[in-house]
């Protein structure tokens, strides 16, 4: 078997927030020991709310941030904190598409100029660049009339197409998609998802798809990993995550999606709301990071960091989940004391 395209092992990214010489605050653990693998041509969805560290994962993989600990392998090669020549491989094989299609295009440069940057950087001959730019636009479904426009003349969907085109310019193998559709309307979102799927088929791309919206990945991702406060809580085949979500956090995420059909309504787990809100990663709780919000939390959860259990194909990081009872003790005994709210 060949090595997976991307392999991340116990990745850690801590941010030092001390500004003065005499401060001694603990670092913010944005990513705290996550592991994941993405195989060639597959899509892994990384789900999480704000503050979960999901974007930091992508930014660390592509070396915008330096990893604090752990290992990142690209096609078997260790690219954690890469050397100079490795950096070149990364920049030409791994690309990132940002969330906000507007802010990642320079407002003072035409589309054509923005698209030329990666071509120049990868050393495409000058006389070939024009043609390549046109090919890139065509590939994402735009005509060459957009070449000399400024970003503000394009709609959100068109801008995201340009961003995808730019990422594809260097002919990458792995695309990190950081919420590529969450700034878009649904009717446009569907188009972009469609485009990404076509491109994956055509160019045999591998995707790491980062989003807060579980529903988007249902038909899109082969595997799904759910992140909360820097840790992966549940990871497994998308199908299984949706059909029988195990971790209380995944269940809460799924149950809070406003669905649009009765069939979906049945599909959604019963409402198991979480208390309060996501705490700042600065003050991550002890034990299981979800325990102050979790409806199934026991005393054990606040004391002890949960181990990962393997349930069928799914990895769940939860103490309260018991495989034999297929769920939670608290669910079986008292079902409805979860709706009260406290700090």
């Amino acid at each position: 078997m060949t090595a997976p395209v991307l392999e991340v092992k116990n990745l850690e990214k801590y941010f030092d927030t001390n500004t003065g010489w005499f401060e001694n605050k603990p670092p913010v653990k944005a990513v705290d020991g996550i592991s994941l693998t993405v195989d060639e041509g597959e899509t892994l969805a990384l789900i999480g709310e704000s503050g979960s560290g999901k974007s930091t994962v992508a930014e660390t993989i592509i070396n915008i941030h330096e990893a604090t600990g752990g290992l990142i392998r690209y096609q078997g090669e260790d690219i954690t904190n890469p050397l100079k020549e490795q950096l070149e491989t990364i920049r030409s094989d791994i690309q990132l598409v940002f969330q906000d299609p507007t802010s990642c295009l320079n407002p003072r440069r035409t589309i054509e100029k923005s698209l030329r940057v990666p071509l120049k950087a990868t050393g495409v001959a000058k006389d070939k660049r024009n043609q390549r730019v046109q090919e890139m636009l065509e590939r994402v479904g735009l005509t060459d009339e957009y070449l000399y426009k400024y970003p503000h003349e394009l709609s959100g969907g068109q801008k995201q197409r340009v961003n995808i085109a730019r990422a594809l310019a260097v002919e990458p193998r792995l695309l990190l998609l950081d919420e590529p559709t969450s700034a878009l309307d649904v009717s446009v979102q569907a188009k972009i998802i469609d485009l990404l799927r076509d491109l994956q088929e055509e160019l045999d791309l591998t995707y790491l798809f980062i989003t807060h919206d579980l529903s988007v990945v249902r038909n899109f991702a082969d595997e799904t990993a759910v992140m909360y406060l820097g840790e992966i809580q549940e990871k497994g085949p998308t199908e299984e995550i949706f059909q029988s979500p195990k971790h209380p956090y995944t269940r809460a995420l799924l149950s809070s999606i406003p669905v649009t059909s009765d069939s979906d309504e049945e599909y959604r787990p019963d409402s198991e709301p979480l208390r309060g809100e996501v705490p700042s990663p600065r003050e991550a709780p002890s034990g299981c990071r979800l325990h102050p919000r979790c409806p199934h939390a026991t005393e054990e959860c606040s004391m002890q960091h949960p181990d990962t259990q393997q349930v069928d194909d799914v990895e769940v990081q939860c103490i309260a989940y018991k495989e034999e009872s297929e769920g939670f003790e608290s669910l079986l005994t008292a079902t409805n004391d979860t709706s009260t709210e406290s700090q």
Partner: peptide
Amino acid sequence: SIPQLSGE
């Protein structure tokens, strides 16, 4: 255009 949880 809305993604369905049921995977439709």
